[in-house]
Nucleic acid binder design. Sequence first.
DNA 1: GCCGCGCCAATTGTATACATTTCAGTGTAT
DNA 2: ATACACTGAAATGTATACAATTGGCGCGGC
Lengths: 241, 241
Amino acid sequence: MTETRGSTHAKRAAYDLRQRIVKGELPGGTRLYEVALAEELEISRTPVREAMSRLAEEGLLERARGGGFVVRSFTYADVLDAIELRGVLEGTALRLAAEAGVSSEKIQHIKGLIAQIDAGFSAAGDPPDLEAYSGLNEQFHDDIADLCPSGIVRSELQRVKSLPFASPSAFVFRRRESQTMTQSIVIAQAHHHAMIEAIERREGARAEALAREHALIARRNLEEKALAPGEGNPALALIVD
Amino acid sequence: MTETRGSTHAKRAAYDLRQRIVKGELPGGTRLYEVALAEELEISRTPVREAMSRLAEEGLLERARGGGFVVRSFTYADVLDAIELRGVLEGTALRLAAEAGVSSEKIQHIKGLIAQIDAGFSAAGDPPDLEAYSGLNEQFHDDIADLCPSGIVRSELQRVKSLPFASPSAFVFRRRESQTMTQSIVIAQAHHHAMIEAIERREGARAEALAREHALIARRNLEEKALAPGEGNPALALIVD
DNA sequence: GCCGCGCCAATTGTATACATTTCAGTGTAT
DNA sequence: ATACACTGAAATGTATACAATTGGCGCGGC
């Protein structure tokens, strides 16, 4: 089979299928046939089934009536909703963290991350390195979610973030698009500062509202990009209509 | 194998395992062994694996490192958090419904359900029939979630509700416990009225707040019951500590 | 005594043959 | 013309043998 990472055939097949789905090679609604995939990947049906099960757990596939799996369809509206839902869940995570209180060590750790992002802004105000920002931003969102004392909330948030277009780092711009991008990042970073401050001061409602507003930046960026497709983000390939 | 419903061995096995987990016969942390289960259910390993996959999708099992599945552990705190999370998601669903607007037909349908619950209250103020209330209450929660225009939010809410202790109908009292139960139901029903009114008037924030407060009733009821276990709710059997 | 190494049993991973179900196509009867 | 039942290919469901991996236990060396 194609050289993809993983220790078992099932994991490799899952990786392979996941890539194909995210790239849009397997559009929403496509039915997956065990035999065809098994032949294509040069493995037996058993690991193919296993792989499909795993992707169903991730929410990328749905079980079809009468057995089998279908690639889950995501409409453009679904993508916007998933981003908003991420904001709601992040907001809940931050509110619970604020209400429960967070140790100063953890607060300092987050502040360190934020400082790293700050350091990426030059004094001149030109756009920071997008690769670096994307990585740090994702790290920030992961670590801030870990502040939430509820494992249930953490895991459901993680679940929503695993949808390829709902991740906080999904729609970081590909190229430098005028001032829009820089401005968005400046605002987002202001949110980052405010979020940790709200948590530190145990202002739960404020933390929650900030997380929601923060997600709306991602949503707005997507809405603006969608109007001018251009070389669209690959994670959008799986949108069906 | 034991006479459980389902058309395939895998579905029967999933049903059987689900029952055992919810009843607490398979406590959190228990590792499930394919061979043992297969012999016990008198089927082969294949449908057992299939059943475990399905339960993993439901969130009742987790994949263990090195393969296999483990019964997911739910602490008492997890149960409380899951109820609160249900409130958050129901709140989001209602808010989105209110913001988008809902047709008067659907509003009337919900109002009809509420009226049916109202009819269960006698003029004397004695407790309504719990079976009937539980059924109508569950129906209300299902139907009101359907008002949400976002399929993503609906499905994630459905997912959380599928946790056996987070369902709106999970902790309806078993016997008539003084006035506590009656009072709770009266308050809950007031919330029901207010929710649909908020949606009708497109008051999103109010609808959201109501849904959260509504879930807190369920949470408080559980907290009070937990202090005096008695003949506890069976859905609580899967709590590990 | 303790650590590491390797073996063995237990467990999951995989392939494959066979059974069953599903669904579309087709024919017939009404 | 429509509804229904039959048919058969194609798909998933199941059993089972075998392979590979894991994890624990004991043996040996240090």
